[in-house]
Design a protein around this nucleic acid. Structure first.
Lengths: 147, 147
DNA sequence: ACAATGTTGACTAAATAAGTAAACAATCCC
DNA sequence: GGGATTGTTTACTTATTTAGTCAACATTGT
């Protein structure tokens, strides 16, 4: 029941963008350095985020990526949906037809409740919430590369 | 973010025991048949449940397994803890020391909230809750082998 | 033109989960 | 006591997914 590194890294990368909101595109290289993610791996995470309309990218020198929406308009569940897919702990929660037991299965009800509980948390938190909390708490040292 | 089959199968097996509560030990063979689990695989799931004090076993003819406690005293979180381990979506939630960022990491807070939300669901539901719900809903056909 | 950047696809490696098979141990029943 | 029946444990295999790397490619500013 672990979250993939895709989601963890991707969320941190987006938080980094939120912290730099308004400063124009940020280099992937810098995000990778400040969040301690392999650049080659980070490159793979941005494609679905672009496709999902969460970030925009600029190629060439002075390029980089930036948030495509206001941080307050980006719910965390959008991120997990794009990088992780549904949070359903079992397939039958989203697709009852994969198991003939679904209609009478009470364990399925519980797994469904788990999903609902998680969705609740991630639907009520935005990137802005995270960014503000981070600013109050003090930026991690590694995020200060831009000084 | 999927639940292992260990947990899914194990929970169904225990539900089966709860449905047969008071009838003495149930054959693994019958549990496997009624819940459509490979017997050889089911055998692997019972060891941790015995060690965890949730079920007891009887060897030899007329043997089988049965709940070691009343269904109402077995919370689902005990089962997931034994078969799945902690529901922490990331390692650092349970063990902050694995990452130096932990103290200032706001994404960690969110993953921690996810765990709390899940734990809440599984701490407030017992095997008896499941069994009663199942009885009201009608037993799945496959559970009627004992007729 | 060239250097700096993001984009994409192919590939490898590692870890974990899932499942199978077989030897073993205990117990009941006759 | 012997044999059938059942749970217990160990070892092994296979499949799947995740994580990560590498290299070619495309775009753009200077």
């Amino acid at each position: 029941m672990k979250l993939s590194t895709r989601t963890r890294y991707g969320t941190r990368a987006l938080l980094e963008l939120a912290l730099h909101e308004g400063e124009g595109p940020v280099f992937l290289k810098n995000i990778a350095a400040s969040q301690q993610i392999s650049l080659a791996y980070l490159e793979h995470l941005i494609a679905p985020l672009i496709a999902g309309g969460i970030i925009r990218s600029v190629k060439g020198p002075k390029g980089g990526i930036a948030l495509a929406k206001k941080p307050g308009d980006i719910k965390l569940i959008e991120i997990t949906q794009l990088l992780e897919g549904s949070l359903a702990p079992v397939e039958c929660v989203d697709h009852p037809e994969v198991c003939k037991r679904s209609s009478k299965c009470v364990t399925r009800d519980i797994w469904s409740e788990l999903k609902t509980a998680m969705d609740g948390v991630l639907s009520t938190t935005t990137l802005q919430d995270l960014a503000e909390k981070q600013k109050n708490r003090g930026l991690p040292e590694s995020s200060m590369y831009y000084i």
